[in-house]
Design a protein around this nucleic acid. Structure first.
Length: 265
DNA sequence: CTGGGGATGGGGCCC
DNA sequence: CGGGCCCCATCCCCA
């Protein structure tokens, strides 16, 4: 099929008159950027509030289970007279709160023995995953966090939105997208990361350290150069499954699939 | 309308 | 653990 769109058109030099003076082959970022426009970084207000993250645990069914067990056991301990009955909700295992599994309704259960059966008073907290027993709830919790529920070891929540992260570093990185600590001195626009600001400053200075080896056209951003390089290629990276047409950008492929092409609908 | 450039955001990796 | 960098993705605009 004809692929006239694959032919690289001459780019207009009138759009960005300063291209010719910036077509260096190097990708070294000029330090003058920072001499001329030092990157201001707003003093971080308190990035993390004490409530910004929960380093200890995630509220999942297993944890609820443990807590619920503890509550039940302490309750039972205080009212020893109440005999367990089959329909007593207090006897329902905690993870039933989450799943209400019919398996357990049927009586088929892998749950640990109840304290009023054979378990000793010293080992009344049992791990639902490995059946290991502990005398205290704290002991059980620690065991689960370290061994049986490692994914629950950390859960860092953003105080600005609902996102959660498994590492504090990832959370801090994310929080920067709320606080935008890197501010352009020229126009006041704020960015989450210094290198984003750095790229932005190039839009003021006109610096384009990334140049195309084929046509010498220069770009301020490496990603944009990469996208541009696709225009020199006969076979582009993103291909339509239906007509095999290739595109330099995924967005173009998506657009093609949504609006035009063959039988995606 | 389509293709391409500009600008920007975010996750992951490495040092 | 934090900073820098890379890569990918997306949106907007223009020719």
């Amino acid at each position: 099929m004809p692929r006239s769109f694959l032919i690289k058109k001459h780019f207009s030099t009138t759009k960005k008159p300063n291209y010719s003076e910036l077509d260096s082959q190097t990708v070294i970022i000029s330090p003058f950027l920072y001499e001329k426009y030092p990157i201001p970084v707003i003093p971080q207000p308190e990035i993390l509030s004490p409530g910004a993250y929960y380093p200890a645990m995630v509220w999942d069914a297993g944890l609820i289970s443990s807590l619920y067990s503890a509550e039940i056991e302490s309750s039972l301990a205080s009212q020893k007279s109440e005999p367990p009955t089959a329909d007593n909700p207090k006897r329902r295992k905690p993870h039933d709160l989450a799943s209400l599994s019919s398996e357990e309704e049927d009586g088929k259960t892998s749950e640990p023995p109840s304290p009023d059966s054979s378990a000793t008073e010293a080992e009344k907290f049992q791990c639902s995953q490995c059946s290991k027993c502990y005398s205290t709830f704290a002991g059980l919790s620690k065991h689960k966090q370290l061994h049986c529920e490692p994914q629950a070891r950390k859960c860092f929540n953003c105080k600005y939105c609902e996102k959660e992260y498994v590492s504090l570093g990832a959370l801090k990185m994310h929080i920067r997208s709320h606080t935008l600590p890197c501010v352009c001195k020229i126009c006041g626009k704020a960015f989450s990361r210094p290198w984003l600001l750095q790229g932005h400053i190039r839009t003021h200075t006109g610096e384009k350290p990334f140049s195309c080896p084929h046509c010498n056209r220069a770009f301020a951003d490496r990603s944009n150069l990469r996208a541009h390089l696709q225009t020199h290629s006969d076979v582009k990276k993103y291909q339509c499954k239906n007509c095999s047409k290739t595109f330099s950008r995924m967005s173009l492929l998506h657009k093609h699939e949504e609006t035009g092409c063959c039988a995606t609908r």
